[in-house]
């Protein structure tokens, strides 16, 4: 699977390299779009020193970790949100006649390497936050772990949304509100949100495990909502459970397609 993924991604990268001007343009614009979220945080902190009890550097830490996980997912698998377009245009069939897993083919179709710019931008924000925060070095191991489980959670959300499109061919925006909304949510400390919302994204849809719960551990902070300490370490578990659900949903969606046609 990894080999196939790399082959497909490399082919698209080579194709993109044939148009360097377009590549540079997309790179710059991707950065500009992503920079908006960062600018919003900076403007907020030009007016206050703390938001929901968190400092600017702490918020940038949360923004950076969620941002890297999200932009990596977006770079690697974002074409999954075009499943409904593929179904409508009838192009899904062409993925099904190849001797390779359909999910991989769809995820890499039109891979846009210029999206790497947004990953780097999020990484820069995280780098700045880490340098400014002076965190306990014994807790830093959590940073790569949370980014990795964040990627798995986002990828699972993408896949769930894509599987949903097999049933709701005419409503792709429902699933993109779901994926982009989660990314937006994770940029800020959950202490700004209402208690009910936070409960929902902890116990129903495990968005709290992208960066909030593990981030509290890395920052050495207690949860303002008072959840027990072991929750900080559940990120990988939540990611695996969600990935399993997503895989099942995807199989079910594809089976539904193959048994209903279009």
């Amino acid at each position: 699977m990894v080999r196939t993924y790399l082959l497909l991604a490399w082919t698209w990268t080579r194709a993109a390299a044939a148009y360097p001007a377009s590549f540079a343009l997309l790179l710059a614009l991707g950065c500009a779009t992503a920079a908006l979220d960062l600018a919003a945080i900076l403007i907020i902190f030009a007016n206050t020193t703390s938001l929901g009890g968190f400092t600017r550097e702490e918020v940038l830490f949360l923004y950076g970790t969620a941002g890297i996980a999200f932009t990596l997912t977006d770079l690697l698998f974002s074409n999954l949100d075009r499943v409904s377009a593929h179904i409508r245009d009838g192009t899904l069939d062409t993925f099904l006649i190849r001797p390779v897993n359909a999910w991989i083919q769809i995820a890499t179709d039109r891979f846009v390497p210029a999206r790497i710019g947004r990953v780097l931008q999020a990484a820069a924000a995280l780098g700045y936050a880490l340098a400014a925060l002076d965190l306990d070095p014994r807790r830093l191991w959590m940073v790569p772990v949370m980014i990795l489980s964040g990627v798995v959670i986002f990828t699972s959300l993408w896949t769930l949304a894509a599987a949903l499109q097999f049933a709701l061919v005419d409503a792709p925006e429902v699933s993109s509100a779901f994926t982009y909304g989660s990314a937006q949510l994770a940029q800020y400390p959950f202490s700004v949100y209402g208690r009910e919302l936070v409960r929902g994204v902890t116990y129903v849809l495990p968005l709290a495990f992208i960066n909030w719960q593990p981030g509290l551990y890395a920052l050495g902070r207690d949860d303002p909502f008072g959840t027990p300490g072991f929750m900080r370490f559940l990120g990988p578990v939540a990611a695996l459970v969600l990935a399993l659900l997503a895989a099942l949903a995807w199989r079910q969606g594809l089976r539904r397609y193959r048994s209903t046609g279009s």
Partner: peptide
């Protein structure tokens, strides 16, 4: 969805700085 998230963030900001702007 996005409006709700934005509202929470603005509420947090205005709680920290009542009467801002």
């Amino acid at each position: 969805m996005f409006g709700i998230l934005r509202a929470y963030i603005l509420i947090a900001l205005w709680q920290a700085r009542p009467g801002l702007a």
